[in-house]
Amino acid sequence: MKNHVLRPLYTVIGLVVIVLIVRVFYVPKDFGVHERGYMYGWYRESNIEDWKKFGVKYKFDGDYCSGCHPLNHENIMSSPHAIIPCEDCHGPALGHPDNPAKLAVERSRQHCLRCHARLPYPTSDRANIRGVNPDKHNPDVECVMCHNPHKPSLEGLK
């Protein structure tokens, strides 16, 4: 065969070899086929550890909260709001009380209306929650002006 035919062929082979060499150094050792096979298990294994290290923000541990706030905990535990985890309203408690020293408490009307805007849905538990019509029940006033979220019964009105 003539040179002008072989030369591009050598170039192509050379390129393939270069790519293969670069690949050996560039692709991490833990990248490859794992337990679930090539179709579902072709990945970089150390990424699993990366995800495990992702920061937890919510504690969702009532006992952690009641250690310092026993009265608030006791109050809410004897109310229908006992089912609501502290951090749903008080925010993620990661690092508290060191940093942040104070949590940003959600006091907005919108937050209460998540459950207490009346929706007459016959095949959902939503219909069983005491609700108001947000447009008619003291609009423009925050719920917490009158209602105590830790003692939400009407006897607990401020």
Binding site: K57, Y58, E87, D88, G91, L119, S124, D125, I129
Partner: peptide, 15 residues
Amino acid sequence: KCVGCGLCVKACKNE
């Protein structure tokens, strides 16, 4: 049991 309060979505986005 779901009442559509969306507290799960809020917690997910923060977490």
